[in-house]
Design a protein around this nucleic acid. Sequence first.
DNA 1: GTTGAGCGTT
Length: 246
Amino acid sequence: MSHFGRAGPPDIRDTFSLLVLNITFRTTADDLFPLFDKYGKVVDVFIPRDRRTGESRGFAFVRYKYADEAQKAVEKLDGKIVDGREIMVQFAKYGPNAERIHKGRIIETTSKTKGRSRSRSPRPRYRDENRDRDCRRRSRSRSRERYDRDRNRGRERDHRRHSRSRSASPDHHKGRGRGRYEDDRRSRSRSDHSPHPWRSLSPRRTPGVDSPDAQTSNGAPVPKTVSPHTRVDSRSPTPQRSDADE
DNA sequence: GTTGAGCGTT
């Protein structure tokens, strides 16, 4: 009973799962256990963490033995400042198994409440009036993007391997982008440095005849067929890419 | 070393 989650689900017969959100990434199950255990009998505390980094995802699941205690903990701990962050405690909606949830929901209002005869709303909506709104409004940033991207990458990694390896991959973009970037940079560098070297030189050096002079003056094979098209240079070395890419 | 919407493991 020291490490929750390590031993897996101990016993979920009549336990109520509470979802603790907005907890710090440093908060561990051991830190939440005493906190939640104070308000009721906590059978298990599990904090889903990343498999790659092992860091907490920012939410934890607290399993209570009795619904009344769980409800009490929700009311008491919801909005409590833990580790400098306001945590949000609410009943878990989605569970590892749908059956469990179905049962949990029923149990939530029939198992232990039958003796209490207390009609409490299974849905903690009361906290949506002042807490949720404030909490959501107070913080919302690009973190979701990062997580979303991370999750997609880890999950769709297999999928992408099977179907498509190229599309919108930052990794690929970087690996291959370098080659293209070099070309692009080369062409752009020229463009930036001198947008039209032959042009400014041709008309000035040999007004009236720029074709023959441009060739020898620049020293580079620059026929009139490719004068204003600077991109052709960068696209030339990668013809298949353009075909496969788009 | 970081981040902040949401829903879980042997």
